[in-house]
């Protein structure tokens, strides 16, 4: 379809404000970050020295950074896999037409409305080794009181669960919307054909829901890479002994606490490339099997 603008410059003129904003707040900082990543710099770049790819070499030869990569991978897989399956299960339940359904749905979305700082503090209270509710039940039921946040492995588990929980509401909203938009006639046809609920779900509902799932997969992945920061900051500060030091926290620490700006810039470039790559891979593979209804 040909453009209907009378003047061929008009569309560009109309796009100009958006492009200007993008240029100032997105493209320029991105270019600066790439540039900074080739410098050794402190104090916001007051003292700097060109070092080429030294920052990248240092990162990939540092056992701490490799450790952080591994931790991030575990964290992201946990958040995405657990988060999507649990929220889908909850969304299916919440989709039933029962009394007060709207009220339940509202409650389910609630955690998403909390700020990471508040959510982190709530988990801190829950997991407090001596005064927390979780350990109270652990003690009553199993006679143990685990050190949730001072034991490395448990701390990683705790922040993964917290981050997953925090995003549940978001996922549930989308899954619910997806479920409610499912074509009723197909579900009915399945029923008429004698498919049980299990078969209906796997053969009909789940495939039809795939655009939503795919979208959420990407959003959750991005969330796991970048959004876990607030919770980790409040709950563990990357500790104990770097056990919850995911990439984004490591970056924050290097930039804003240790003033190693070049090294931090290199890390954000790496994160950027990773998220771009993941999204591309997903579009290529999962994307092909996604069923966009009605086309």
């Amino acid at each position: 379809m040909r453009s209907r603008f009378p003047n061929k410059w008009l569309p560009y003129l109309l796009l100009l404000p958006t492009l200007a904003l993008c240029a100032i707040f997105l493209y320029y900082p991105v270019i600066q970050t790439f540039r900074l990543s080739t410098y050794r710099a402190i104090l916001m770049g007051l003292h700097r020295k060109y070092v080429g790819f030294e920052n990248y070499v240092r990162l990939f030869t540092s056992s701490d950074y490799i450790h952080s990569l591994t931790i991030t991978f575990i964290f992201a897989v946990g958040v995405v896999v657990l988060g999507l399956s649990i929220s889908l299960a909850i969304a299916l339940l919440a989709n039933h037409k029962i009394r007060g359904a709207r009220f339940y749905r509202l409650l389910l979305i609630w955690p998403y409305a909390l700020s990471p700082a508040v959510a982190g503090s709530i988990w801190l209270f829950l997991l407090n080794p001596t005064a927390g509710v979780v350990n109270y039940f652990m003690k009553v039921l199993f006679g143990i009181s685990p050190d949730w946040l001072t034991d490395g492995r448990l701390a990683l588990l705790a922040v993964t669960i917290a981050a997953m929980w925090k995003n549940l509401g978001y996922n549930i909203v989308f899954f619910l919307a997806g479920l409610q938009n499912l074509p009723g006639e197909i579900l009915e046809a399945a029923k008429v054909d004698g498919a049980g609920p299990w078969t209906t779900f796997w053969r009909v509902t789940f495939p039809l829901l795939s655009p939503t799932t795919f979208f959420l997969l990407i959003m959750n992945l991005i969330y796991a890479f970048f959004g876990g920061f607030g919770l980790i900051m409040v709950m563990t500060e990357g500790g104990p002994n770097k056990a919850t030091n995911i990439l984004i926290f490591n970056l924050y620490q290097d930039a804003f606490r240790f003033h190693k700006w070049g090294l931090a810039a290199a890390q954000s470039v790496i994160l950027f490339i990773m998220v771009v790559a993941l999204t591309l891979i997903q579009f290529r593979t999962t994307g092909r099997r996604v069923h966009y209804g009605g086309q």
Binding site: I42, G152, G239, P240, N241, K242, Q253, R257, F258, H259, K260
Partner: peptide
């Protein structure tokens, strides 16, 4: 030390690793 904050964090990581027996 110009890098005092970072040094502190590194020292603590070491102490935590020792205490945990790693």
């Amino acid at each position: 030390m110009g890098t005092f904050v970072e040094a502190r964090s590194t020292i603590l990581d070491a102490v935590e690793a020792v205490l945990a027996g790693e």
